[in-house]
Amino acid sequence: AKPPKTVTVKVEVTNADGETQTRTVTLTNLPKDLKPGDTVTLPETGQTARIVEITP
């Protein structure tokens, strides 16, 4: 079996106070056609994050 493909992405997350924070997260099994501006759900927090940058 192939190991899951991990991708490092820079995302913007809005916290409970309405502040936008930029975080770098490593995600696995992202859709192939994901692009900056799309939103993903962070598995560890369940927060919705907007992708700023994808590092191949």
Rank of each mutant, 00 (worst) to 15 (best):
D33N: 10
L27W: 08
T55S: 12
T55P: 07
D17H: 11
D17L: 10
V11K: 00
L42D: 05
L42K: 00
G46E: 03
G37V: 00
V52S: 02
V40F: 15
D38P: 00
V11T: 01
L27M: 09
T48R: 09
P43N: 05
G18Y: 02
K5Y: 15
T48V: 14
V40I: 15
K2N: 13
A16F: 09
E44I: 10
L30M: 14
T22I: 15
R23C: 10
P43T: 06
T20F: 07
I54M: 06
P4E: 10
G46P: 01
T8R: 11
L27Q: 01
L27E: 01
G46K: 03
G46A: 04
P3N: 08
G37R: 01
T14M: 13
D33K: 06
T6E: 08
T28H: 10
T45A: 03
R50C: 04
G18V: 01
K10C: 06
V11I: 10
P31S: 13
G37K: 01
T14C: 07
V25F: 09
V40H: 01
I54H: 02
E12T: 10
P36K: 07
T45Y: 04
K5D: 14
V52N: 01
T22E: 07
E53I: 04
P36N: 04
I51N: 00
P36H: 04
Q21Y: 15
E19W: 13
E12S: 09
K35W: 04
V7H: 09
Q21F: 15
V9L: 14
Q21W: 15
T41Q: 08
A1L: 12
E19H: 11
Q47N: 04
G37P: 00
E19A: 11
T39M: 14
K2G: 13
D38E: 04
T14K: 10
I54P: 01
T26S: 07
T41I: 15
D38Y: 03
L34R: 02
P36F: 04
T22S: 05
V13C: 04
G37C: 03
V11N: 00
A1K: 08
G46T: 03
P31W: 15
P36V: 15
A49D: 00
L27T: 02
G46H: 04
T6I: 10
G37S: 01
R23W: 15
T20R: 10
T41K: 08
G18M: 03
V25T: 03
Q47K: 04
L34P: 07
E44F: 09
N29A: 08
G46I: 02
R50S: 04
A49E: 00
D17F: 12
T26Q: 10
P4Q: 12
T48G: 03
G18N: 03
G46F: 04
P3Y: 09
T24A: 03
T26Y: 11
P43R: 07
P43K: 05
V9P: 00
T24Y: 15
T55R: 10
D33G: 13
T48N: 07
N15R: 05
V25L: 14
A16E: 12
V13K: 01
T39I: 15
L34S: 06
T20K: 11
K2Q: 13
K35Q: 09
V11P: 00
L42G: 01
K32Q: 12
I51H: 00
K32E: 14
I51E: 00
G18L: 02
T6R: 13
T20L: 10
G18D: 02
Q21C: 10
T14E: 06
E19N: 10
Q47T: 05
N15Y: 08
K5I: 13
K32V: 11
T26L: 10
V25C: 10
I51W: 00
T26F: 10
T28N: 07
T39A: 05
K10D: 02
T48C: 07
V13T: 06
V7E: 03
E12N: 04
Q47S: 04
T55W: 15
T45R: 03
K32P: 14
P36I: 15
N15F: 09
K10T: 11
T14G: 03
T6P: 10
P4V: 13
E19Q: 12
V13M: 07
T45H: 03
L30Q: 11
V7R: 05
K32A: 14
T8H: 06
P56C: 08
K35D: 02
A49I: 05
T39E: 09
T6G: 12
T24M: 13
K5F: 15
G46Q: 05
P56N: 14
G37A: 01
N15M: 12
D17N: 12
L42T: 01
K5M: 14
K35E: 04
T24S: 06
L42V: 04
T26V: 12
R50E: 03
R23D: 02
R50L: 12
E12P: 00
V7P: 02
P36Q: 05
T20I: 13
V11D: 00
R23I: 15
